Simulated assay, not measured.
Amino acid sequence: MEIIMSFVIGFLFMAAVYLMLSKSLIRIIIGTGLLSHGAHLLILTMGGLGGTAPPVVADGVSVSDYADPLPQALILTAIVISFAVTSFFLVLAYRAYQELGTDNMNLMRGTEDND
């Protein structure tokens, strides 16, 4: 399962970098969202996907059988933070589009080069 997750994480990082290198502000925001989701999956995979017992150590349960709760808590916090940052970016992009009339990064900078 870790091999499949590593390919999914690699694809998410690849798509995020591709979108973040574009000229459209909305595509950049979507790229940052994909990058955060890739990081969440990376933390979850590095924490270990196995574990069938709840994270309460009791008699008869070995340490390798329970699910580690720390990566899940970190990811939950990171999801909330990335949602807030994405919301802020979307509001900022909407306001920039209202003021400037474009979402092209080159036109926002003031350069007229439109490759």
Rank of each mutant, 00 (worst) to 15 (best):
Y94G: 11
G31N: 01
H37Y: 15
A78L: 09
S6H: 11
M14E: 05
L44D: 07
Y97Q: 11
L19W: 06
I4G: 10
Y94W: 08
L44F: 07
S24K: 01
T111Q: 07
S22M: 04
R27V: 00
V63Q: 14
T102A: 00
F83W: 13
V85S: 10
L34V: 07
M105I: 00
A67R: 15
H40D: 13
Y66Q: 15
A73F: 12
L35A: 14
L100C: 14
Q98A: 10
S87A: 12
S64Q: 13
I43R: 04
L107S: 01
I9P: 02
I4F: 13
M14H: 11
D68T: 11
V17N: 07
N114F: 00
L21P: 01
P69A: 08
D68S: 15
T45P: 01
S62K: 13
S22W: 01
L35I: 07
T102D: 00
Y97G: 05
V85T: 09
D65A: 14
I3F: 14
Q98M: 10
G50A: 12
N106L: 00
S87D: 05
G38K: 08
K23C: 00
G48T: 06
G50W: 10
D115N: 05
A84Q: 06
A39Y: 14
L19Y: 04
V61K: 01
D103I: 00
A84F: 13
G48V: 08
M108W: 09
